[in-house]
């Protein structure tokens, strides 16, 4: 069965992509590096971060490359003044309001490439009290003075031995919500609550995870692009200053707990498992696991 091809123009060059491909696919095919934050191959594009926007001839506004399908004859610019401006501003707006220090190297690269200077919006506001951002009433905020740039900074949430939630780092990319919902786990323990700048990822009434629908599959963690969701083991290592990715080896194996055949990637540092992920491109799991595969490895490390 041969797939139909669609021809479009990117930065003046013709690119043929298969029908149904997005502009992002086309850009990648052509080797045009396109920044993304809320996009992930194994999740439904939510196109909320807007960092992947490109200029499409005939469109009044820029369009998100990650979700816009290529149509015959489209003419796309990926590095025009408008595109560069939007990407720069999106990165600045995020970095001025969110702690991006644990974002991937790739994201740090985007910041440099677009010369993002988040500090020009002012000194970041200090963290709010625990629970403050979880209890703000929709439609009302305290007027700012303009002296400080408002941020989402707040205390980290550590409630169990599985993972930590540091929403000071959350860019609201919705990936964790999608992974918890119909894109993977179908558990629906978390959703976006509140509105506008006060929107946040939350369980119902901000109830603790162990009282929520959460089944601790941990599928939300590897999809998080900024380290807001993190394995407790990794968090503890980072706190202790012993986290060292250079010393980590990643070995692919198969989970032992049932007959599905989920592939595990064991991240091992000093003969200790420090993180368990699953390959996104493997069609048994598409990157997703359950609590046993993700966390049930402790027994091989009880060496006494």
């Amino acid at each position: 069965m041969s797939e139909r091809l669609v021809e479009i123009e990117i930065d003046g060059d013709t690119v043929s992509v298969t029908e149904g491909a997005t502009l992002l696919d086309a850009c990648r095919q052509k080797g045009v590096e396109t920044p993304t934050l809320c996009y992930l191959e194994n999740l439904t594009p939510i196109n909320a971060c807007r960092v992947c926007v490109v200029e499409l001839e005939g469109s009044r506004i820029l369009v998100p490359a990650c979700s816009r399908q290529a149509e015959p004859g489209m003419k796309v610019k990926t590095d025009s003044e408008r595109v560069r401006h939007s990407r720069k501003l999106v990165l600045e707006l995020l970095a001025s309001s969110v702690d991006m220090s644990l974002a991937t190297d790739e994201v740090q690269g985007f910041m440099e490439r677009y010369d993002a200077k988040p500090e020009r919006f002012g000194t970041p506001a200090p963290p709010t009290e625990a629970g403050d951002r979880d209890s703000r009433h929709t439609g009302h905020h305290h007027a700012p003075t303009g002296e400080l740039a408002e941020t989402v900074a707040q205390p980290i949430k550590i409630h169990d031995e599985m993972y930590v939630r540091d929403y000071s780092r959350c860019i609201l990319c919705y990936k964790c919500v999608e992974a918890c919902g119909t894109d993977a786990q179908n558990t629906f323990a978390i959703a976006v609550a509140g509105r506008g700048f006060d929107a946040r990822i939350s369980t119902e009434f901000d109830t603790l995870l162990d009282n929520s629908a959460c089944v601790y599959c941990g599928n939300c963690i590897p999809v998080c692009p900024t380290g807001a969701l993190m394995f407790k083991v990794e968090h503890d290592h980072r706190e202790a200053g012993t986290w060292d990715e250079a010393k980590q080896a990643v070995t692919r194996t198969v989970c032992s707990y049932c007959g599905v055949g989920c592939n595990l990637e064991l991240h091992v540092q000093d003969n200790e498992i420090v993180r368990v992920t699953s390959p996104q491109d493997h069609d048994v799991t598409n990157g997703h696991l359950c609590i046993k595969g993700r966390f049930g490895w402790q027994f091989v490390q009880n060496r006494d």
Binding site: D160, V215, G296
Partner: peptide, 18 residues
Amino acid sequence: RLDSYNTGVQTGSFNSPI
């Protein structure tokens, strides 16, 4: 149950919140 396995010799060693 979801977070446990057979006679528990393996899963018993991790601290499941559920």
